[in-house]
Nucleic acid binder design. Structure first.
Lengths: 202, 202
DNA sequence: TGCAAATATGAGGATTGCTCATATTTTTGG
DNA sequence: CCAAAAATATGAGCAATCCTCATATTTGCA
């Protein structure tokens, strides 16, 4: 573990502010020109620091993208954990899952840059693996609830279903925000129907 | 249309052979070292041609990846078109769809490099858009059949469902080939159940 | 055969991630 | 309060890589 994203732990206040400024500027750049357009030299210039200082905080470009992705992941992880926290029945799970998807979708719509950050992640081999891990973690979260609610069901099947449902949820979001709003809504609705039916059928 | 992937149309036999050799070597390189490791200079060297010649056939690196992806897309497009060709009832559609997925899955398992080519596509902004187009085309193929079989159903909903089912099929494949075989099989089975249920419910 | 068009070549221009020797600022110890 | 040491900042420049273009070679054709 150690320090996967920042080179030196930003202990001083100035350091933390600087890391925040770097990430904010990186987000702006990606939002404005797409994930392909993130240039380390420009990022340093925008932040008002030298290229060397930028590399003092982030060991490489990948780490900047990683940090951005980690923020998104943390946010959605929190959504998921909170949404599933107090679920005690299959009906409650279906409801919770449905509003979870709605929240997640709203988040994607409100922050279109999330999609571009995802693209940036996909462009980097190491980060793709990290993202797969994240998917698996979210699947495990859902699987844990399902095992509680369906103690008789086959554990492996629960595991696979939970992973699939989460993974396809992400895929649906990315598709939904890339089409016009009305169709995006229909896609999300269809996904919710499918997913909830599959979960309750376990 | 014109010539989206090769700079000059390979009219002479030598040219066609050369293009094939380039693509074969590109496939090998991606298979061996991942999609990040495709170097134009190395590709030229392996093929036994100069870097300049390589650029005579492909306007840029993106075009090489595009050509590879186009081959995969053509193959799966053919699968889909063939599989859905003679479908006359909803039951037949369900069957056809099921074995379509099986075929597609087998293709992915047999050619793991397909996944890496997909990664390479994702790493390029323009190619991502191309891939979205492809997804939409496949969705349209399925939607056409569905409109025949369900003339009363809402066209927009059919459209959205078909697109979603196709898109999630691709997402499922990518996930399934990245985990161990037994779990991959379970994921594909779960997806088939979900998708067929959603289609027949239209 | 001889000329024109097509094709091949690879040195080098341009871009960009990243390093490292040096300079500056901050902290610490007396 | 000062000097030494530690931490941080700087940006010229290295290395890797994509791609161009002026030149050389090969091919097709009259």
């Amino acid at each position: 573990m150690a320090e996967p994203q920042t080179r030196r732990a930003p202990t001083q206040k100035r350091s933390r502010e600087r890391v925040d400024a770097i990430l904010a500027n990186a987000t702006d750049m990606i939002a404005q020109a797409g994930s392909d357009a993130l240039r380390m030299s420009e990022l340093a210039q925008r932040t008002g620091i030298s290229i060397g200082s930028l590399y003092q905080y982030f060991p490489d470009k990948s780490a900047v993208v990683h940090a951005l992705a980690e923020r998104c992941n943390a946010e959605s992880r929190a959504c998921i954990a909170e949404g599933l926290a107090a679920v005690g029945s299959m009906e409650a799970l279906a409801d919770a899952f449905g509003s979870l998807i709605d929240t997640y979708y709203a988040l994607f719509l409100a922050e279109p840059v999330i999609r571009d950050i995802w693209s940036a992640v996909q462009a980097d081999g190491a980060l793709r693996a990290m993202e797969a891990e994240e998917s698996r973690r979210n699947g495990a979260l859902l699987a844990a609830r399902l095992r509680m609610l369906r103690p008789k069901a086959d554990a492996a099947r629960i595991e696979a279903t939970a992973l699939l449902v989460m993974h396809l949820g992400e895929a649906t979001m990315r598709l939904a925000v890339s089409v016009d709003r009305a169709e995006g809504d229909r896609l999300v609705e269809a996904y919710k129907r499918m997913a909830i039916r599959e979960l309750t059928a376990l």
